[in-house]
């Protein structure tokens, strides 16, 4: 113990310049992330404005009782996790693909323009995305139905078709995030040692072979780290996406579009009880932490170098 402390002291002394440079970040996290943490106690009390967070009566997990009462917990967890898995898998694949394609482009001006266009959707608010999708799919004057009618097909009522929505939501999520997400992969590719590729080219490897045997393996650390970061939020539904595209109470679609967030929104919207909201988000975070720890543990076993910690 003593020697450990001593070595810690030594490290501090040795790296003090770097530590000073880190200080703003350390202070930031202390004030905004660690100091407010005791406030999570609000999740376990029946909050009373007059008594404050720590004076309110303790109820343990009582704030979560209403989810159990609804009997929908299984469906909600299933939807939330499946959607997130879908989002993570598809966007990782597409983002890598886009980065690879950009990497192969030789015309720099063309690359820059296309890149900007692909990033653009990321800056469009989900409220507008909801309006776009309504303009596309609605029954009265939607673009999709106008096209179908032009070709003499019967119109489809997308907003009453539960099966269509998993695909629509995944596609919208891709459209919005893929371009922006590809930047990290593209940056990793830019940092790659070009000599390896040139050597492979001299040895007669086709461009597909170069991607398969050189580029992709060198992207592996990036993929794993980004994956580790995203699995932490696997129990958090993207409220913006679901609420704006589907609405929170389209009952015909709920079985395939209801996630924890939209459910809680419906339950809370007319009685703002923030103990309950805090309790749910606390459980989601705990679950996310466990998933990250487990995944990291697996990565550590298989590829110790790529683990986060």
């Amino acid at each position: 113990m003593k020697s450990k402390l001593k070595s810690l002291g030594k490290t501090i002394k040795k790296d003090r310049k770097f530590l000073i440079m880190c200080l703003p970040a350390i202070i930031f996290f202390l004030i905004f992330a660690y100091l407010p943490m005791p406030g999570i106690w609000v999740a376990f009390v029946k909050f009373d404005f007059a008594k404050g967070i720590f004076g309110s009566p303790f109820v343990g997990l009582g704030n979560l009782k209403f989810i159990a009462m609804s009997g929908k917990l299984g469906m909600l967890v299933r939807n939330t996790i499946l959607y997130n898995v879908g989002f993570i898998v598809t966007s990782t694949a597409i983002q890598i693909l886009i980065a690879l394609l950009f990497n192969e482009l030789t015309n720099k001006t063309f690359r820059k323009y296309t890149q900007s266009f692909m990033i653009l959707p990321n800056f469009i608010s989900y409220v507008l995305v909801g309006v776009f999708s309504f303009a596309l799919f609605n029954n009265t004057n939607g673009i999709l139905n106008a096209i179908l009618q032009m070709f003499g097909q019967a119109p489809v009522n997308v907003y009453e078709n539960a099966a269509a929505w998993p695909f629509i939501l995944v596609l919208v999520n891709l459209w919005k995030g893929a371009g922006y997400g590809s930047i990290v992969y593209f940056a990793a590719l830019m940092g790659m040692d070009k000599e390896m590729l040139e050597a492979a080219k001299v040895d007669g490897a086709t461009s597909l072979q170069r991607i398969r045997y050189i580029t992709l393996p060198s992207l592996r650390p990036t993929i794993i780290i980004l994956l580790l970061l995203s699995v932490g939020g696997i129990l958090h539904g993207n409220f913006d996406l679901f609420y704006n595209l589907v609405g929170s109470n389209n009952v015909t679609l709920l079985n395939s579009t209801d996630v924890l967030e939209t459910f809680i929104f419906r339950a809370m919207v007319s009685n703002s009880n923030f103990s309950t909201a805090a309790a749910v988000s606390f459980i989601q975070s705990i679950f996310g932490l466990v998933v990250v720890l487990v995944t990291n543990g697996i990565v550590k076993k298989v590829e110790p170098d790529y683990a986060l910690f």
């Binding site: 029946k46 009782k65 209403f66 009462m69 339950a267 007319s270």
Partner: peptide, 18 residues
């Protein structure tokens, strides 16, 4: 009846507007 109110609200907002 806090839990009941929250749960009733959820059930009601799910079905009644539809």
């Amino acid at each position: 009846i806090d839990s009941e109110i929250t749960a009733i609200n959820e059930a009601a907002t799910t079905w009644m507007p539809s």
